[in-house]
């Protein structure tokens, strides 16, 4: 799981290494560190933005260990679905059970429909929709697109994917 985390260190040498060590101890992987030495918080601490990958069950222990080392954890953001793409659908989108079309993606567990805009020019006319799919990884996103393609082709809906 990809996590972004804002932490604050006390302003004495060696604190950054001290703060990062528990990440690797718990099997995590540091993706980026933004260490703003010259920007202090009102309480005189140094803000650091971390992005890391860690198993979900390791996260609580990581926060505990950071607190033990006098590191303030200010914010934790989970970004589970990190890959996205937009596709267009053209056809009788609503009347061919839009709910089921969306479920075909949401039920995978690795991908979701996160955005949908629908344009319906007339009752008997074809609708157009833009759909944003998000997934936990690139391969999963590709698989989600395959699933959506199979689902809508059965319903006579045209799908337009990105190059």
């Amino acid at each position: 799981m990809k996590i972004s985390m804002d932490i604050e260190l006390t302003d004495i040498p060696g604190q950054l290494v001290l703060a990062l060590k528990p990440v690797s101890d718990l099997g995590g992987n540091i993706l980026s560190v933004l260490h703003q030495r010259d920007k202090k918080t009102p309480s005189g601490r140094i803000p650091v933005q971390l992005t890391l990958e860690i198993e979900e069950q390791g996260l609580d222990r990581l926060v505990e260990r950071l607190k033990e080392r006098d590191v303030n954890v200010v914010r934790i953001g989970k970004e589970r679905l990190k890959e996205s793409m937009m596709v267009l659908l053209i056809g009788h989108i609503v009347h061919t059970d839009l709910g089921e079309t969306i479920d075909s993606i949401d039920s995978t567990g690795f991908a979701e429909v996160v955005e949908l805009s629908l344009s319906m020019p007339g009752v008997d006319k074809k609708s157009s929709a833009s759909v944003t799919l998000s997934a936990i990884g690139k391969e999963e996103l590709k698989e989600a697109l395959n699933i959506l393609e199979r689902t809508v082709s059965k319903k006579g809906i045209m799908i337009i994917s990105s190059i």
């Binding site: 937009m86 267009l88 053209i90 056809g91 805009s117 344009s119 020019p121 074809k126 609708s127 157009s128 929709a129 833009s130 045209m158 337009i160 990105s162 190059i163």
Partner: peptide, 27 residues
């Protein structure tokens, strides 16, 4: 093969809003 006969102007608008154009692409 699929062609362009089913493309709607609404679809082109939705694409445009998201920063895309629709083109018939051979790959």
């Amino acid at each position: 093969v699929s062609g362009i006969t089913g493309i709607t102007s609404e679809a082109l608008k939705l694409a445009d809003d998201a920063g895309y154009v629709i083109k018939l692409i051979g790959e």
